[in-house]
Amino acid sequence: MKFIIVLTFCMVAVVLAQEKYDTIAEDFNVSELLANERLLNAYAKCLLSKGPCTAEVKKVKDKLPEALATRCAKCTDRQKQIGKQLAREVKRTRPELWNEIVAFYDPDGKYQEAFQDYLKP
C-alpha cells in the first residue's frame, strides 16, 4: 500500500513538472509586431494596464508575473524564443518603453539577474 501511495505522488510530481503554459502566443509573428508601431503601442498599453487588451495579450499579461518569478519554468521553447526576441528588440529599439515595462513588472528589481540570464544568447 505504501508503494502505491509513493508511486502516486511520484506520478503527480512528474505531471506537475511537465506542466507548461498552453499554446499562448506560439504562432505569434514577432516581426509583424515590431514593424507595426501602432500595434506595439497597443500591446504595451495593455501590458502596462493603460489600455484595453486583446484576449491573446491578456493571457500573456496574466501569466507574465508568474513567468518572471519562475524564470519561465512553464514556458515552452517557442514561448521562450518569442519572449527573448521581443525583449531584446524592444530593449534595443524602444529603451524608454522597455524601462517602463521593467519598472511595472519588477519595481523592486528582484528579477533583474534572472532576466539578464534569460536574455543571454
Rank of each mutant, 00 (worst) to 15 (best):
L33E: 10
K91W: 02
K63R: 14
Y43Q: 06
P95H: 13
Q85K: 05
K120N: 06
T93G: 04
E37R: 12
N29K: 14
V15S: 09
R92G: 03
Y43M: 04
K110A: 00
C10N: 12
I101F: 06
S49K: 02
A25R: 02
I101V: 13
L47E: 00
K110C: 00
L7S: 15
R78C: 05
L7N: 15
C72A: 13
A103F: 03
N41Q: 15
K59W: 04
L48C: 08
E66C: 07
Q18A: 15
A87I: 06
K80F: 05
K20S: 12
V15F: 13
M1P: 05
L39Q: 15
Y118M: 12
L34P: 03
G51M: 05
V90Y: 09
M11D: 13
V12T: 10
L34D: 10
A114Q: 05
N29M: 10
Y111G: 03
E113F: 03
Y118L: 09
K84M: 15
A44G: 09
N41F: 09
A73W: 01
E96M: 07
D106P: 00
P95A: 11
T8Q: 14
V60M: 12
V90L: 11
K84P: 11
T54Q: 13
A44Q: 08
Q79A: 03
D117M: 03
L34Q: 11
R94I: 12
R38H: 04
D117N: 05
D77V: 06
Q116K: 09
N36F: 07
K45P: 02
A73C: 14
